[in-house]
Nucleic acid binder design. Sequence first.
DNA 1: GTAAACAAGTTTGTGATACAGACTAAACTG
DNA 2: CAGTTTAGTCTGTATCACAAACTTGTTTAC
Lengths: 109, 109
Amino acid sequence: MASNERKQENPQAAAAIDRIIHEPARYMIMAYLYVVESADFIFLLNQTGFTRGNLSSHIARLEESGYVEVIKEFVAKKPHTMLQLTRKGREAFEEYRKSLQQMLDGLPK
Amino acid sequence: MASNERKQENPQAAAAIDRIIHEPARYMIMAYLYVVESADFIFLLNQTGFTRGNLSSHIARLEESGYVEVIKEFVAKKPHTMLQLTRKGREAFEEYRKSLQQMLDGLPK
DNA sequence: GTAAACAAGTTTGTGATACAGACTAAACTG
DNA sequence: CAGTTTAGTCTGTATCACAAACTTGTTTAC
């Protein structure tokens, strides 16, 4: 254990966190998609209580990150947006939860 | 359980989170203070690897929130800043950890 | 058939925030 | 006393979360 092995103590776990998922709004979205497997814009809107604009931009961010796939189609002549986690998104979500758990386990009591 | 008890499902746990502590940098600071009981600026600087400016502003935020007490004194003629969690800060930290744990427990598997 | 109302999102504007780099003030060094 | 070090603070900037305004198309009212 060389002397330059400094600062690898516990609270450091917090530094390794996926900031995309760390935002509670996005965590909520991903958590729904994680269990539901696929959901539409309106469903998420109702469940989360976000404004449309806010929801829209979080979805855009998740899409850019490659965490969700956005499928747009027309249903009964209206636009309809379906969301689902990508494989990458699912893995990132699991990884994030693992990190958090480690962070929590890091402290005694 | 009235029918208007809607949307109290699990991912909602993410909405109730203390944003002050949710920032990983501040979580790290509070985690150190939680175990160490009291630490100085330089110690935190070394442990966290933050820049002075960044550390300074997070400390300011924690102080405003009433989560840490900042004690400035002169040691060997040099300014010396000691930090310690307030009771409120300690409770908020425990509360935050509890919320996170609930959030994690919220999902199956 | 045109106008008002509605539906489903997207774009834009704003205020807050995280971070780093420049700055400051005091003390020590040669 | 000029320069350097120490210990922080202040300032500038890029990013972000959020809401309000806007867009595109459909349905309803007259």
